[in-house]
């Protein structure tokens, strides 16, 4: 498998504080990679660094193109949709406007209309609330909106920062079913950050474990799932 996203020797810092110390990992084309790790390990920062939202050095290639020095908006235009920590909803705009913004850089306007229907197919509740201010949605609904908005880009790669956060268990499973469909049927590659390691390992083909800004373990998701010792010592389940 060829890599869609290749990260090599990634360092990132907030002002003078360095939080990532030379990460190397990749997401294969049409693959699912998960980043696991405890609070403050640097998972969110890793996703931000890929999108150019924090100062970074190293080498990041997306679809064969070096993006280490590209701007956030340029990287989005290449087809990288980031569903950030805290969802990044435009709270004062309507649900429909939020979804339109997901596709704002696309030129194929007719397909955008179809994609809106497709997103409503995945998340019927968004259709019911399409005229409502996004800030008035429940947390779970906002999470769906964030993912729906990312889909509107027709991304090649989605970066998902704890998509299950704050969702009821039934919704979490629904969400992961949708992510599976997106990956298997639509061929969207995923880089998934999750607290829920068991769930993430089921969806992922590859996993990396982060501790204080370093990768301490990596391997095929299946192996990690089946290796009790690793699960116990690193993932706590």
């Amino acid at each position: 498998m060829t890599a869609l996203l290749d990260v090599y020797g990634l360092h990132a810092s907030y002002g003078p504080t360095r939080v990532l110390h030379g990460l190397s990992f990749s997401v294969s084309d049409r693959g699912v990679t998960t980043l696991l790790g405890g609070n403050g390990a640097g998972k969110t920062t890793t996703l931000r660094a890929i999108c150019g939202m924090v100062a970074r050095t190293g080498e990041i290639t997306f679809a064969g193109q070096t993006i280490t020095r590209s701007s956030t908006e340029h990287i989005a235009r290449l087809g990288v949709a980031h569903v950030p920590d805290g969802r990044g909803t435009f709270t004062r705009l309507t649900v429909e406007e939020n979804l339109e913004l997901g596709a704002i850089t696309r030129r194929d306007r007719n397909d955008v209309v179809d994609d809106l229907e497709r997103v409503f197919g995945y998340f019927p509740v968004l259709q019911k609330r399409r005229g409502q201010q996004a800030g008035t949605l429940s947390g779970g609904e906002q999470q769906m909106l964030a993912i729906g908005r990312a889909l509107m880009l027709r991304p090649r790669l989605m970066l998902l920062d704890e998509p299950s956060f704050g969702l009821a268990p039934r919704l979490v499973h629904e969400l992961f079913d949708i992510l599976t469909t997106l990956n298997k049927r639509e061929g969207v590659s995923l880089l998934l950050v999750e607290q829920n390691a068991a769930l993430a390992l089921e969806l992922a083909d590859h996993a990396y474990l982060l501790e204080t800004g370093r990768i301490v373990f990596s391997g095929a998701a299946r192996e990690i799932r089946e290796d009790e010792k690793i699960r116990r010592s690193y993932l706590g389940y």
Binding site: T72, H82, G88, F90, E97, L101
Partner: peptide, 19 residues
């Protein structure tokens, strides 16, 4: 719409590709 989004939340606006 892009101008409104950029004014409301520049960080999220960049994430959807708005300059």
């Amino acid at each position: 719409l892009a101008m409104r989004a950029a004014a409301h939340d520049p960080v999220s606006a960049r994430l959807v590709g708005i300059r």
